[in-house]
Amino acid sequence: MKKFAVVLAVLAALGAAGFWLLTGPATWAMLRGDGNLAPRGVRSTENGRTMFYAGGCASCHASTGQDDKTKLGGGLGLHSPFGTFYVPNISPHPRDGIGSWSQADFIRAMREGVSPDGSHYYPSFPYTSYQRMTPDDIADLFAHIKTLPPVEGRVRDHALPFPVTIRRTLGLWKLAFLDGQTFKPDPAKSSELNRGGYLVEGPGHCVECHSPRTFAGDIPADRRFAGGPDPEGQGGFIPNITPDASGLKAWSKGEIADLLKTGFTPEYDSVGGSMAAVIRNTSQLTDADRAAMAEYLKSLPPRVSPPKPKKGS
């Protein structure tokens, strides 16, 4: 009997050690990711500004309770089926924001979802998309954020139920759902289509909202961009943005680009909810970039929308 207890204890210890080994950021980096973390070119804050607006950073990170979208003090509560995430301060404040981060820290956070002290971020921070960005674009973005005003104050901790609170489990989630690959342009396609693909799949992170998720919080590959019930609740339904009849089939490329510029649909309906904040960002891009994004969305495989939930009366 005593022997049995010892064996059990050893097994438990091995299990715990295995879990610990398997869920570390270093293990993920060894098994996944393309190790593409070093920028090569010269920094451009102008390109960084483009990435800032393509990435929609301010939509989540702008300080709550005020209108200046360059103040990135955070505080917004993102309600999800996994609990409420409180968006952190990413202003260049040295103590409360990311002012003391190195460029390498920032690139690793964006591409691998790891904080400077080596803990996993929750994928409510959409590094599943940002991983597609090049280290150069991320470094430029960092340079741009450094030009914005520092904001004091740290944001409260996330309000999550156990066991979501154990960040280490995200190591397993990442092994399953984060491949760590930079966007690969397809040389057979036009440079516009590749640019649009990069903006949509990388900084734009459109897929993060415009797709249904499984119980594990991942997006099935064949459901990407097909829309679905709003995970933020309130009974909203997020539109399908594939060129299916239940999506954007009837929309021209110019109409999609116009929506990204003005927020108006072809019927002059004005988009609401958090898409209004997205438009505030995409309206800052060039016409060429918006057209490229539209071109890419039109090139997606058409997918049928998930069924709409029955509305209660």
Partner: peptide, 8 residues
């Protein structure tokens, strides 16, 4: 933005 939910 404030008073309307997302819709398709």
């Amino acid at each position: 933005e404030t008073y309307r939910v997302k819709k398709s």
